[in-house]
Simulated assay, not measured.
Amino acid sequence: MDPKSKAERFLSLVERLSLRPHRVSELAQLYGVSVRTVERDLEALSHAGYRIEQLGRGLYRIPDRPPTLHPVEALALFAAGRLLYHQAPTRQYENALEKLAKMLPEPLRSLLLKSTQGLEERRGDSRTLEMVARALLERRVLAFEYRSGGSKNWRPKEVLVYFLEANRTNLGLYAIGYERTYHRQILTFKLNRMRNARLLEETYEFPEDFDPNVYLRQAWGVVGAREETVEVRLRFAPEAAWRALEGDYPGLTVDKELPDGSLLARLKAVPFKGGVPWEVLSWVQSFGPRVEVLSPPELRSLWLEEARQVLAKATESVGIRG
């Protein structure tokens, strides 16, 4: 290998051996070199001052002391690692997870590494992910083609990326930024609905008045708002009330507990076409008949209409239409 590749291999060796013990044969296969080359690399690292420990025949590690963490801090990082694994669209996330695991004390480190195996099989679009990440880091305008949910048409977009958000429902990644080609406002774009992403030479600065906390405060998902929102009022049946009371839904406010055990609650969300907050509708429907939409009228009408369509299907004979 050339000197640059060798230097990169040395850095990778230090990271991997600090994370967990590795066998020489395993490392040789990983880097595509001979076992003897790995042994020479280990000797060179030892001469450079790294403490190389041999735990068994062909098994080595570099002792590493993770930072001192409060138990709750360690648990928070472990939970972040699990969420990262579930959200990871590509195998490139494996390196990030390994670096996160390195910060954890045992046994959380080993548990996280074991529970996140299989990322090498992920085949997501790493190019789009890289372009969006670089757009944010380098503050360069991102150009791409976008297909909205349910649409068959791809439309060109140019966006100044201000923020990246993971949807707490489906864990998908979304880019939030100023769309300058048509709408000329801050919008949210799902990464896996993009194609042919590329960076333009033009750069930009983050606007001082953009605060992701303010933008997402009234989001029921990832579609935020700086201005208009609608208030949604709901009635939870007694058998679903406990889910609302547990507080797992940020932005949901319980107004009143009724004598029969049901709840009156409300939330604010961003309206889409027709004044309907679609993100809220799909969430409400996940409760089945245990949640009733009281207002706004547009959402209640659509909720009832879709319930009628479900009922109509239930009364039809089951069969496959040609």
Score class of each variant (00 low, 15 high):
Leu13Met: 07
Arg20Asp: 03
Asn213Trp: 02
Gly177Thr: 12
Gly251Ile: 04
Ala28Lys: 04
Arg9Gly: 12
Gly32Ser: 10
Glu130Thr: 15
Ala219Trp: 08
Ser286Leu: 11
Ala48Phe: 04
Ala197Ser: 15
Glu106His: 03
Thr128Ala: 11
Leu17Gly: 04
Lys6His: 12
Ser25Asn: 09
Arg243Glu: 15
Asp248Gly: 04
Val232Arg: 05
Arg308Pro: 04
Glu94Phe: 01
Arg65Gly: 11
Arg36Asp: 15
Asp125Lys: 03
Leu200Ala: 08
Val310Asn: 05
Ser18Val: 07
Glu257Ala: 06
Glu257Phe: 00
Gly56Arg: 13
Gln185Phe: 06
Glu130Val: 15
Gly274Met: 09
Arg40Val: 05
Ala135Ile: 04
Gly274Glu: 13
Glu43Leu: 11
Ala265Arg: 01
Ala96Ser: 12
Glu208Ser: 14
Leu245Ile: 02
Ala101Tyr: 12
Ala74Gln: 02
Val35Phe: 05
Val291His: 09
Ser12Met: 01
Arg147Val: 09
Leu252His: 00
Asn196Pro: 07
Ala7Ile: 14
Tyr50Ala: 02
Trp220Glu: 04
Val214Gly: 07
Gln87Gly: 01
Ser25Gly: 10
Val254Gly: 01
Arg140Ile: 09
Tyr204Ile: 07
Gly221Pro: 06
Ala225Leu: 09
Leu112Phe: 00
Ser115Ala: 13
Val214Leu: 14
Pro66Gln: 03
Lys313Val: 08
Lys99Asp: 08
His22Cys: 00
Pro297Thr: 08
Ser46Thr: 13
Arg155Gly: 07
